[in-house]
Design a protein around this nucleic acid. Structure first.
Lengths: 194, 194
DNA sequence: AGCGGTATCATACGTACGTATGAATGAACA
DNA sequence: TGTTCATTCATACGTACGTATGATACCGCT
């Protein structure tokens, strides 16, 4: 299963053969069929193993106390934290998203869940004039893009800007930047009356 | 070639067979080998056919007259425009990015180019206090994420928020939102003295 | 009309894939 | 110790892949 995680994330579904997974896991060729039923079933199990905890964490972050702006911060941070713990995940998500493979398993589901959660926070903040006006779904998309993209572009950032996510301090700085960018992007432009 | 474009974008490199492409193009199975040399060569040709014009457009947008903030706007808009004309492209880019397939062909190259260009504009703006402080490469990443992500999430947006990119007016609204979000994210937080 | 070169065609080859199959293994229990 | 049953194993099957091959069709030229 661990082998499936990293190989699916690195090479995608089509690019990962059952032989590669079982080889890496020093298991027999038939192991996947026996334990999961099929390659596709293993893939879905891998996806679920990643997304279930992420969904829980994001829900917790979204439900944290504090004003909407802070809760959005918490969501963005939760994303960064989870990606830091599971470096294969952003690739896996993007692989799936960009593959257009249907029907959409849990990845899409968690995406939608997060989407609605964020949009709800934003709408609430807009009601209180703590978040700038605008379509909540669009704002949510702009926000979600940050943690995902930064993690996806890790190799590019390392190469063109010597920004290395392997350094925890650097990763923290990047998360800080993303949070600040998002906050600036959604905060009301005028000083709010408090 | 047109068939290769759409099929590669829809199903990725591994997910697209030579037989599928030639079938769609109503050409013979050997056509790709004959005209391009190999499936990989066709793929690279497809990539290049997409990225070369994009690179030119982005360079032009980045070199447009006006203050840095406006030039960043122009870059974001150029992205949206090009994606509107070539709907398959964002998927193709993401497919490649998330596939981790090496060695990096033109996609990565154009990414780097755009990256440096944007970072230069940002650094210039920061020097003039027209753009908030922060690592230019990080800001550039945050910015690039917007057009790419919105185009990638098209289906999700349509489903959960009834935002349909097929409608030109809607697409324009989304681009408008992205530009505004980016501008808010990078503009100085205080009123600038002007 | 006849030729030369380019493109298209059907088809074959070797490889790799996901899955199926049945034998071997090993620990739990009587 | 003998039996059972879940797991591991080697191997086989059918399919689909990318590419190679040689024949055929097409077309501008003299």
């Amino acid at each position: 299963m661990g082998a499936g995680r990293s190989l699916f994330a690195r090479h995608g579904y089509d690019g990962t053969s059952v032989r590669a997974i079982t080889g890496r896991a020093r298991a027999n060729l038939g192991a996947i069929t026996y334990h999961f039923g099929s390659k596709a079933a293993l893939y879905h199990a891998v996806i679920a193993s990643f997304t279930q905890p992420l969904r829980d964490r994001l829900s917790a972050a979204a439900a944290s106390p504090g004003p909407p702006l802070d809760r959005v911060d918490a969501v963005v941070r939760a994303y960064f934290d989870y990606f830091a713990e599971n470096p294969e995940l952003p690739r896996l998500m993007l692989q799936h998203l960009s593959s257009g493979r249907g029907p959409p398993p849990p990845v899409i589901d968690i995406g939608r869940h997060l989407f609605r959660t964020l949009a709800a926070i934003l709408a609430e903040g807009q009601f209180d004039d703590e978040i700038r006006p605008g379509h909540p779904a669009l704002l949510a998309t702009s926000i979600i893009a940050q943690p995902i993209f930064f993690n996806l572009l890790q190799p590019v950032l390392r190469e063109v800007a010597a920004i290395d996510f392997a350094n925890p301090k650097t990763r923290e700085d990047v998360a800080e930047h993303a949070v600040a960018f998002v906050r600036a992007g959604i905060a009301p432009s005028l000083e709010r009356p408090s």
